[in-house]
Design a protein around this nucleic acid. Structure first.
Length: 431
RNA sequence: GUGGGUGUAGCUCAGUUGGUUAGAGCACCUGGUUGUGGUCCAGGGGGUCAUGGGUUCGAGCCCCAUCAUCCACCCCA
C-alpha cells in the first residue's frame, strides 16, 4: 500500500519550503513596511458564509463537509469573507482605516492546470473604511512594491486597471438593464481572451440592440477616460452625460494621480478589458500580469463597497487584492529570479572533531555556539577531519570550527583562511 | 464535466522490426585519495517498466481497460 499527495496539492520538501518562505517572507516584509497588520482566520467556516458572498453555486467549487454536529462547513477558498466577518464583529472598535494583510492557505475543488492548484497560498491586502481612490492606489502600490521586492521589473510585469463603476454606468446609459449588466460584463471580460469574431458574437447575444453595441464599442476604444471631461466622454460614446459617470471618472483620475505620486505609474495603464469575473467589485478593479501574458493573472483586486453589508454589517467600503503563490512562483522561476543561495540552508558553523574521539568537547562547542544565537551543527560519526570538512562543505557552512586539545581552529570555508584560537576564549566569545 | 499528451530508479531520461539476469547521468550510502574540505577513483543500495487484462513461443515495446499526472476548455472568488 502506498500513498501519494492528493491531486492538486504539493509536498514542500526543504528545497520547496525555502522557496515558499522566500516568497511569503517578502510578502510579509512588504506588508509591514506599507503599514498593514497581519491577521488570520480559521481554515474552515460555515458554508453559508461563502454562499452568502458568492451564491449557492459556489458549494460545487469548494471542499465542504458536515461535522458530527450536523453543521455544514467548508474549507476556505478565499479569506475575504472571513475578513469581512471579523471586521463586522468589531466594526465600532477598530480604528480606521483598517489596513490588514494575511497569507492564508486556501483550497478550491477545481481541476488543476498550469498556475492553478487545489491548495495554494494567497497574499491578501485590504483597506477597509476608506472611500478615497487613494486607498485603491495604495493597494496597487503595495502589489508593485512586492513585485520589485521579488526582483521583477516594470518591463516584466504590469498592472492593468479600469473602473467597474464607470463601465456599469456607461452600459446603463446605452440601455443595458441593471439585470443584464453582470452578463454583459462577463462578455467584456472575454474581449482580450477570445477571437474578435467570437467576441462580437457573444456581445450580440448579450446586447441585441445594434446601436447600443456600437456605443459600447466606442467606449471600449477610449484609452484615457480620466483625461477627458464627462461631456467629452459622453460625446465620444454617444450617450447623455451623467453625474455618476463623471464621479467614476473623477475617482479614476484621483487613482491614477495617486499611482503617479507613489512613483508607480510606469507599471500601470488603463485597460477597459479588465472586469474581474463576476465578483463583488463595485469600483476600481485591476489585475497584475506578466508582460508576455503567457500566464494567468499574478494578482487581482479592486473596490468592494457592499461586501460588509451583504455579510450582515454596516455599509462600510473596502478595497484590496489577492496574489497567489503558484503563478508567481512559475514566473519567478521562468525569469530566473530565484536566489541561488536558496539551494543551501545557512549554517554559521560546522564543528569538527579535530582529534577524532572527543565528541564531548565538540558538543560543548556546539552548545556554546547555539546558546550564542549562532547556527551550528556537527557530525554524529567519528571520522577523519577531511570527511568532516566534506560534510561541512556539503551542509553549506560558512565556517568550520576544528576542535583540538585546547585550541579551536576557525576556518572560513569560502576563503580557506584559518586562525587558531584558545578553546576557552572561543567558548566565551565565538564571534 | 469535456478534449488531448505522458507514465521505465529519488530526479532527468536511454532502451534497436517484440528476443536472456532493464541501463546512463545526477542524487544518496560506503571505502580510498587529496597535509584540512570543494577534485578524483572504486564499490553499493534503490525499479513487480503506473495497474489489470489480452495477443504471442516470448511484451518495457503491440491491443484494450483502469488509474495517475500534465496541458487546454468550462469556471476562476
Amino acid at each position: 500500500m502506498s500513498f501519494q499527495a492528493v491531486k492538486g496539492t504539493r509536498d514542500f520538501y526543504p528545497d520547496a519550503m525555502r522557496l515558499r518562505n522566500w516568497i511569503t517572507d517578502a510578502w510579509r516584509r512588504v506588508s509591514l513596511r506599507n503599514g498593514f497588520e497581519e491577521f488570520d482566520s480559521p481554515i474552515f467556516e460555515y458554508l453559508d458564509l461563502f454562499a452568502a458572498k458568492s451564491g449557492p453555486e459556489i458549494a460545487e467549487q469548494l471542499f465542504s463537509f458536515t461535522d458530527r454536529g450536523g453543521r455544514n462547513l467548508a474549507i476556505r477558498p478565499e479569506i475575504t469573507p472571513a475578513l469581512a466577518r471579523m471586521v463586522n464583529a468589531r466594526i465600532n472598535a477598530l480604528p480606521r482605516p483598517i489596513k490588514w494583510f494575511s497569507i492564508p492557505r486556501l483550497c478550491r475543488a477545481e481541476n488543476p492546470q498550469k498556475g492553478r492548484l487545489r491548495e495554494f497560498f494567497q497574499w491578501n491586502i485590504d483597506i477597509i473604511g476608506e472611500d478615497s481612490p487613494l486607498a485603491d492606489a495604495e493597494c496597487v502600490f503595495v502589489a508593485i512594491d512586492a513585485m520589485r521586492e521579488l526582483g521583477l521589473t516594470a518591463g516584466e510585469v504590469a498592472v492593468r486597471y479600469s473602473s467597474r463603476a464607470l463601465t456599469s454606468r456607461v452600459l446603463a446609459a446605452v440601455g443595458v438593464t441593471v439585470a443584464d449588466v453582470p452578463a454583459v460584463l462577463a462578455v467584456l471580460d472575454k474581449r482580450a481572451k477570445v477571437p474578435a469574431e467570437a467576441f462580437a458574437e457573444m456581445l450580440a447575444k448579450a446586447v441585441p440592440d445594434e446601436p447600443a453595441r456600437q456605443a459600447i464599442g466606442r467606449f471600449l476604444q477610449i484609452d484615457n477616460p480620466m483625461g477627458i471631461s464627462a461631456d467629452q466622454l459622453a460625446g465620444l460614446v454617444g450617450i447623455q452625460a451623467d453625474p455618476q459617470i463623471a464621479a467614476a471618472q473623477r475617482d479614476l483620475e484621483r487613482f491614477a494621480r495617486g499611482l503617479e505620486d507613489f512613483g508607480a505609474a510606469e507599471w500601470c495603464r488603463y485597460d477597459s478589458n479588465v472586469v474581474r469575473g463576476l465578483a463583488y467589485y463595485t469600483g476600481i478593479v485591476y489585475e497584475v500580469f506578466d508582460r508576455d501574458q503567457s500566464l494567468r493573472a499574478l494578482a487581482g483586486g479592486g473596490r468592494y463597497d457592499n461586501l460588509l453589508e451583504v455579510l450582515g454589517g454596516p455599509k462600510v467600503g473596502g478595497t484590496g487584492f489577492g496574489m497567489g503563490d503558484v503563478v508567481l512562483g512559475i514566473l519567478l522561476e521562468e525569469k530566473g529570479k530565484l536566489p541561488a543561495d536558496l539551494r543551501n540552508p545557512r549554517l554559521d558553523f560546522f564543528v569538527v572533531d579535530g582529534l577524532e574521539g572527543q565528541l564531548g568537547k565538540v558538543l560543548e562547542v556546539v552548545g556554546a555556539l547555539r546558546r550564542a544565537g549562532l547556527s551550528a551543527d556537527f557530525s554524529y560519526k567519528s571520522q577523519p577531519v577531511g570527511k568532516q570538512l566534506k560534510e561541512a562543505n556539503r551542509r553549506g557552512a560558512a565556517r568550520a570550527a576544528i576542535v583540538k586539545q585546547d585550541v579551536v581552529t576557525v576556518k572560513n570555508l569560502s576563503s580557506g583562511v584559518q586562525q587558531d584560537r584558545p578553546l576557552a576564549e572561543f567558548l566565551d566569545k565565538p564571534t
